[in-house]
Design a protein around this nucleic acid. Structure first.
Lengths: 216, 216
DNA sequence: CGGTACTGAATCGTGATTCAGTCACCCTTG
DNA sequence: CAAGGGTGACTGAATCACGATTCAGTACCG
């Protein structure tokens, strides 16, 4: 957890080489899944590496074959998932022509990804925010990538004349992201009823779209 | 950090009795301020109690005269500040008659409180989200209080016919809170330019208001 | 004095990380 | 085909630094 005082990051452990069936990708994924579950239940700080190991059905030491440290486990979890979201989103956006559809797509996608994954939602909206250092150094760049994608949707809509042009795409992107993140967080902290997120998605989209449309 | 297995919480340490000038309220506040600064810089987990003590100019043990534990320090920080925000907000809302003004008031107040206090902003948007347990047990109730206040503003506006009635005040409240929280977080993680928050406030308010107004 | 606020060095449990082995598998060679 | 041995994944008990918390003692005030 201490600031590394070396300028060169220690090499991320190479995952054991894929062999035949891929026992390995399997194991890394199993550890990530177990970590999500345990982190969500107990919090990152209160979770012992050995508990993650037990939940994943591997030995304590095995975790260090796949991840540099406990921190790295958390960060990898986030990076893996957000990159997946980004890829899915990019693909989906390709098929939506109008700005309205595209905005709705963003909203439905972010909430949809977490709808069935309460644990993941908890980890990302709560546990990930451990330290400023962790956030700034590792999470912020990926966040920025995601925010840029949203901002581009807004900017395109403005250029097309669909969205009002008197607001900054970046501020709007942060607003949208924050709104969704907040919805997710309160959902995860509360009863997390099934379907709650998608119901919220529609309303959030309705309000934001209405607020963003250019008045003629 | 472990789940307390006792049904009765250990009594919060009584702050040393106020005497004459109030040396005590002073000291508690000094510790809270020091904690804010250090937590923001290093993160909660990586901060040693002794560092907070040094920053506050008191002995390590003194902290335990005012707070139950390191956790309690973080939670108290949050509770103190959000209760202040709530009180200020309630007072201000009393003077704003129209729903539009009231909504703008909420937005300006939440962002305004943090504009000059980057450290506090970091602690609340980032460090506070340590563990699910901490959040659920201590922070969530205060959050709920705050969200209710916002929801009431929305509901009143709907009753008055100013705001559209086809969205849930609670979902809208979460959306607004989340948007502001997200704006604050990205601001704190980034350059945190002076004035950045109030500039954002105007735009967020413009978009949300436009999205919420009833169309006739 | 008696009491209260405060101090800070010592304690003591903890848990991340390491590493010396074990195991399973496959390739080589006779 | 069997034996030998090399390779790399995996194991889990031991280490060892760390830092929250405690508490015996000091200082000060009335």
């Amino acid at each position: 957890m201490t600031e590394s005082r070396f300028s060169t990051e220690p090499a991320r452990p190479r995952a054991p080489r894929a062999r035949g069936k891929s026992r390995d990708g399997d194991k890394r994924e199993r550890i990530l899944r177990a970590a999500t579950k345990v982190f969500a239940r107990k919090g990152f700080y209160a979770t012992k590496v050995s508990e993650v190991a037990k939940a994943a059905g591997v030995a304590d030491g095995t975790i260090y074959l796949y991840f540099k440290s406990k921190d790295d486990l958390l960060v990898s979890l986030f990076e893996d998932r957000i990159m997946l979201l980004l890829a899915t989103l990019d693909r989906a956006l390709g098929e939506r022509p109008t700005p309205e559809e595209r905005l709705r797509c963003v909203i439905e996608m972010q909430l949809g990804l977490l709808e069935g994954e309460r644990d993941l939602a908890e980890v990302i909206t709560i546990n990930l925010r451990q330290s400023t250092r962790l956030m700034k150094q590792y999470a912020a760049p990926k966040f920025a990538l995601y925010l840029d994608t949203i901002a581009r949707v807004i900017a395109d809509g403005q250029k097309a004349g669909t969205f009002r042009a008197d607001v900054s795409p970046h501020i709007v992107a942060r607003t949208i992201f924050g709104a969704l993140d907040g919805i997710t967080m309160t959902w995860a902290l509360g009863k997390a009823e099934a379907g709650g997120l998608s119901r919220a998605a529609t309303q959030v989209a309705d309000v934001l779209l209405e607020g963003l449309l250019a008045r003629r």
